[in-house]
Simulated scan of single mutants.
Amino acid sequence: MSGKKCKHCGSSEIEVDPARGDAVCTNCGSVLEDNIIVSEVEFQENAHGGSSAIGQFVSAESKGGASGFGRAYVGIGQESREVTLRKAREGITALCQQLRLNQQCIDIACNFFKMALSRHLTIGRPANLTQAACVYMTCRTEGTAHLLIDISDALQICCYQLGRIYFKLSRKLCINIPPTGKCFFLYHKVANERAAT
């Protein structure tokens, strides 16, 4: 930052670190700029002779700024979307195993989540509720004997919040959910009574 001075102490000793993407006053320690985006690519050599790019990953699909609010990307070529999908698959798999659902149901729920993510329907919603709503959509479309209360009990989350997210996602994704008849609730009640005895 040639010619620049620290606005806190007036020092002109400013250190720019492209690896961190910031500019720091070496006199007082104030961070003057962060998330600096540079157009050139620099590489550094590690102790084993390999090289890696210096800086932060900025996705071509992002609308300005570095991905992850200035954090360095997680792995070589691994974007935030891939990390989100991996974590969602782990959460969905754990819930489906708890509900004794098969691999086909896990894959369908993950596809529902992927659709929601691509349409930006996951923004502002807790990840576990979105994943649970995708699992419930799968249960309804596949005709399993699970109710919304089963999923909310398994995750210890509010049934009403889960229901609201489920309805919003199913409506926005245009998923045709078959209606639930009274016999389905009776079957569920009898199954729970048998499990209790």
Rank of each mutant, 00 (worst) to 15 (best):
E42I: 10
T84M: 12
Q78M: 13
C28W: 04
I123R: 10
S51E: 13
K114A: 06
D17A: 03
F112V: 02
E90R: 08
I14D: 01
A66E: 07
G21V: 02
L148K: 15
C96G: 01
I37E: 14
N46S: 06
A116K: 00
V24Y: 00
S62G: 06
S52Q: 10
H146A: 02
E15R: 04
I36E: 03
D150Q: 02
F112K: 00
I76V: 06
A127R: 09
E82G: 10
T122F: 00
G21E: 01
Q44T: 14
A145P: 01
G70N: 04
L99P: 04
Q97N: 15
M115I: 03
A60E: 13
G70H: 03
C28P: 03
A72I: 12
K7W: 09
S67Q: 08
L95M: 14
T26N: 02
T144F: 01
S11M: 05
C9L: 10
E45F: 11
L147F: 03
A116M: 01
H120C: 05
I36T: 04
T93W: 04
S12G: 15
T26L: 05
G75Y: 14
A19Y: 08
E79W: 05
A94D: 09
R100Y: 15
Q44V: 07
R125T: 11
A133F: 11
V24K: 03
Q56E: 07
V31N: 02
H48C: 05
T144S: 09
V83Q: 13
L32Y: 04
H146S: 04
R119H: 12
G91E: 12
H48F: 14
Y136E: 01
R119L: 12
I36S: 03
I37L: 08
Q97D: 10
E15V: 05
Q103Y: 06
G68R: 11
N35F: 10
N128S: 12
A53Q: 06
Q104Y: 09
A53I: 15
K114S: 09
V41I: 11
A60I: 15
P126N: 13
D34C: 09
N128V: 15
T122M: 06
C110L: 03
V58M: 12
D22P: 00
A133I: 09
F69C: 09
T141Q: 14
A94S: 09
